[in-house]
Simulated scan of single mutants.
Amino acid sequence: MTGMIEKMKSWVSLLPPIGYTNILEIIILAVLVYEILLWIKNTRAWELLKGLLVIAAFITAAAILHLTTIMWLIERISTAAIIATVVIFQPELRKALEQLGSRNFIANLIPDDGIDDASVTTINEIIRATFEMAKKKTGALIVIQQNQPLKEIEETGIRINGIVSSALLINIFEKNTPLHDGAVTIVGDKVTAATCYLPLSDTDISKDFGTRHRAALGMSETSDAVTIVVSEETGRVSVAANGKLCRAQDAEALRSMLPTREQKEMDKNTRFRIFRNTRKEGKA
Rank of each mutant, 00 (worst) to 15 (best):
L150P: 00
A167C: 07
M71L: 15
V120R: 13
A80F: 15
E155H: 07
A107V: 05
L150W: 03
G114Q: 13
D117T: 11
A134Y: 04
A80S: 14
A96M: 12
F173C: 08
I88M: 13
I172W: 03
L168Q: 02
T85D: 03
K95N: 07
G162K: 14
Q148R: 11
Q146V: 10
K95Q: 12
Q146G: 03
R76C: 02
P149V: 08
Q99G: 08
N108S: 09
F131G: 04
A81F: 15
N147L: 15
I142A: 06
E98A: 02
D116A: 15
N104P: 03
D117R: 14
A63N: 09
L168W: 00
M71D: 06
P149E: 08
T68Y: 08
I82N: 06
T121N: 14
I126E: 06
I83W: 11
Q90D: 04
E92M: 01
D112V: 03
A62L: 12
V164M: 05
S165W: 01
K136D: 12
Q148W: 07
Q90W: 11
E152A: 14
V120I: 11
A129D: 05
Q145W: 04
Q146M: 13
R76D: 01
P111A: 05
R128V: 04
W72G: 12
T122D: 07
L109V: 10
A61P: 04
S102G: 11
L100F: 09
T130I: 01
E152W: 12
L65W: 06
T156A: 01
E75C: 14
L141M: 09
R76G: 00
I74Q: 07
N108M: 13
T68P: 01
P111Y: 05
I110W: 10
V164W: 05
L73Q: 12
I163P: 05
T156V: 02
F173T: 02
Q145P: 00
G101I: 08
I126M: 15
V86P: 02
R76T: 00
A81I: 11
S78Q: 13
R159S: 10
A107R: 14
L73Y: 15
D112S: 12
I83N: 05
P111V: 04
Q148G: 05
N171F: 07
A107L: 12
H66K: 15
R128L: 10
G162C: 09
V164T: 10
H66E: 15
I106P: 01
Q146D: 13
I142G: 04
I123P: 01
T85L: 15
E92I: 02
T138N: 14
G157K: 00
F173V: 06
I123D: 01
S165H: 02
L93M: 11
I144W: 00
R76A: 07
R103T: 10
I126T: 06
L73K: 09
Q90N: 07
A129I: 04
